[in-house]
Nucleic acid binder design. Structure first.
Length: 281
DNA sequence: CATTTCACCTGGTGGC
DNA sequence: TGCCACCAGGTGAAAT
């Protein structure tokens, strides 16, 4: 499940390999739900543009694109990986995986490919028109705050008065952009907070502990190239190693690394939720 | 409005 | 060994 650390790792890898390159040909698969911007518009918009840079916002990868021969405006290609999406930089001869939905042929001879078996990923194209009021022509930014940048006061304000479980709040992308199931569970363990606790009832001191824990977990995971559960790989097809550091996620029944008691699993907000009944209260 | 539930997908898993 | 029901979970729409 690509979350902030996995998306950050992929965005950095793609940035290193394709920044300064140019899109010379575009091939897009015919899977309608993939295209947040209509497929034809996307294909025409991408062709011929230079790639200025690649970065992450929330769980989205944004490719910044230069002007095209037939367009005076810069543009963006926005990739959301969903559950099983991959963004790969390959050679043209590289084996084309099943469920490859986009192939961008680059001037350097490489290809940028989007592969997504479960089809929860989405691709969007925007022309950036200065002064435009149209949301489709304004630079894309994930709606929530960046967990790595959020201040103590902002973090507290996010959860003020909220009745839902803290884990559900952490997963809400309109509050914090980039936290998914793995890092919600891991950061709540690191902060010693029960996932079911109502967000608005957590005292400021404990919320601050959660903010620091969340940032620590995310930064550590980025250092290790993300968590490879199921089939996650980075832009080169290389796995991450943070899954070896997981304390609770998918460790149901296994001994807590801190107290030795078995990790418990419940369902919360429609998702598998893992915690230590003694270390998290 | 705030919150909860559910559909969308396919590959991997586990039971028989 | 093979078959198949079931589950994982990010997101947005629908329901409450």
């Amino acid at each position: 499940m690509p979350e902030l650390p996995e998306v950050e790792t992929i965005a950095r890898g793609v940035q290193e390999r394709v920044a300064g390159d140019r899109i010379v040909a575009v091939w897009l698969n015919r899977v309608p739900q993939t295209w947040k911007t209509p497929r034809g518009e996307q294909a025409r918009g991408l062709a011929g543009r230079g790639i200025l840079g690649v970065h992450r916002t929330g769980k989205h990868i944004v490719c910044e694109l230069g002007r095209a021969a037939d367009s005076p405006h810069k543009a963006q290609w926005i990739v959301h990986l969903g559950m099983s999406g991959r963004l790969l930089v390959t050679t043209p001869e590289g084996e084309v995986h099943a469920h490859t939905h986009a192939r961008l042929q680059l001037a350097s001879g490489r290809e940028l490919r989007f592969v997504d078996p479960r089809r929860f990923g989405r691709l969007e194209f925007r022309r950036i028109v200065p002064g435009s009021g149209k949301s489709s022509e304004i630079e894309f930014k994930a709606p929530g705050l960046d967990p790595l940048q959020v201040s103590e006061a902002e973090f507290r304000a996010l959860f003020q008065g909220r009745k839902l479980a803290i884990k559900a709040a952490l997963l809400n992308q309109r509050l914090l952009a980039g936290v998914g199931n793995i890092y919600a569970d891991e950061s709540l363990f690191a902060a010693g907070i029960r996932p079911t606790m109502r967000a608005g009832r957590i005292p400021p001191q404990r919320l601050e502990r959660l903010r620091v824990a969340l940032q620590g977990v995310l930064l550590h995971a980025i250092e290790l190239g993300g968590s490879s559960v199921s089939d996650y790989v980075d832009a080169d097809g290389v796995k991450g190693f943070f899954q070896l550091e997981h304390c609770v996620y998918q460790r149901t029944g296994e001994p807590c690394r801190r107290c030795g008691k078995p990790i418990k699993r419940i369902e919360l907000a429609g998702r598998g939720t893992h915690y230590c009944p003694t270390c998290q209260n």
